[in-house]
């Protein structure tokens, strides 16, 4: 029962978690819970993508709704403009979003820190308003509606799971490569990184490209799964961009598994409250579903700066020995 966290045993938990997720739709025969898990898996993708750019490369984005929305609209426009299946969006949503990412990087990467964050908010809002007003192209606020291809949730579930695994896997691989070190170097000290000959613009762009690619895919998936989009849903500052950040923070900024954990916490916590603990407690509790999440965010930032995953050892100590105090230094994953 030593205080040291046994790192060797982590893969076990991870493997079991993934196995659980793979078997989940077979174990649980309820479309409602499958739906919740699909949404959570989609948030795993968005949160992890945000985390690569912001948590690992240090460019805090408040505009991930741009990529999500562009991906979703790429898929949607296939049906409205070309009368083709929205599934083509799964092929092109990522690349289109990546191109948008390149342009946005070109504009924004000359700015640093809070200025970068502000610029991403501004661009996000511009995207939303243009999508709302360019009616001949996007249908404006009438939105785009399609009919889901499958009635069963299972295909969507495995697609979302595949997307989540691909996203987290790619990010894990990238971070093990040379790129990953460059990203972190830029986050820690951009000037020092430049001095060492790392082109910060180039690596920030690469990070943004991967990040926007997966967020765009998540957007295209959303179009296919939810079958209805409008600009206020997919380009939402509050419900997409900021949620992406909160998912990352709750789980742990700059950890590979953090956003995944954060996504599940967010979706399940909100739904638990929204349904008043599945009808077990009085209904007024459901009104507090976002409030509780907000309080959790404040709590995590205040007391667990590295999120649930980043500060896991801290939580464990708290659990086993309430009095034990130590400050584990966690750097990255």
């Amino acid at each position: 029962m030593g205080n040291t966290f046994n790192w060797r045993k982590i893969p076990w938990a991870k493997v079991l978690s993934v196995a659980f997720l793979v078997l989940f739709p077979l174990l649980v025969d309820s479309d409602y819970y499958r739906h919740l898990f699909i949404i959570a898996l989609m948030w795993v993708v968005i949160g992890s993508s945000w985390n690569l750019l912001s948590g690992y490369t240090g460019q805090v984005s408040f505009g991930h709704a741009i990529f999500f929305g562009v991906g979703a609209y790429t898929a949607g426009l296939f049906t409205t403009k070309l009368s083709m299946s929205a599934w083509w969006g799964m092929l092109l949503g990522g690349p289109v979003s990546l191109l948008v990412g390149i342009v946005i990087g070109w504009i924004c990467f000359r700015l640093r820190g809070p200025y970068f964050a502000l610029a991403t908010i501004a661009i996000g809002e511009i995207f939303r308003q243009v999508a709302e007003n360019w009616i001949s192209f996007t249908e404006g606020m009438q939105g785009i509606l399609i009919i889901q291809t499958f009635r069963s949730k299972i295909p969507y579930y495995y697609l979302a799971l595949g997307l989540a695994i691909a996203c987290v896997g790619t990010i894990a691989l990238v971070l093990r490569s040379k790129w990953g070190f460059y990203f972190i170097a830029i986050r820690e000290d951009q000037d020092a990184a430049e001095a060492l000959g790392i082109s910060s613009y180039r690596y920030k762009s690469l990070s943004l490209m991967i990040s926007s690619f997966f967020t765009g895919l998540a957007g295209a998936f959303y179009m296919n799964y939810m079958a209805f989009i409008d600009p206020q849903v997919v380009f939402s500052l509050h419900y997409i961009s900021i949620m992406a950040i909160l998912v990352g923070i709750i789980g742990g900024v700059g950890t590979i598994w953090g956003p995944a954990v954060g996504a599940f916490i967010m979706v399940l916590l909100q739904e638990t409250f929204r349904s008043s603990f599945y009808g077990l407690v009085p209904r007024w509790v459901s009104e507090a579903h976002v409030l509780v999440f907000g309080l959790l965010v404040i709590f995590v930032i205040r007391y667990m700066a590295n999120g649930m995953v980043g500060d896991w050892p801290k939580i464990q100590q708290l659990w086993s020995r309430p009095k034990a105090v130590s400050s584990p230094s966690v750097s990255g994953n």
């Binding site: 805090v60 820190g113 900021i242 950040i245 930032i301 400050s327």
Partner: peptide
């Protein structure tokens, strides 16, 4: 608090605003 992102205070204001 030691944290990865220097923007932690900004993120806190997001949480405060939400609450």
């Amino acid at each position: 608090v030691d944290s990865i992102l220097p923007e932690n205070q900004v993120l806190m204001t997001v949480g405060v605003g939400m609450v």
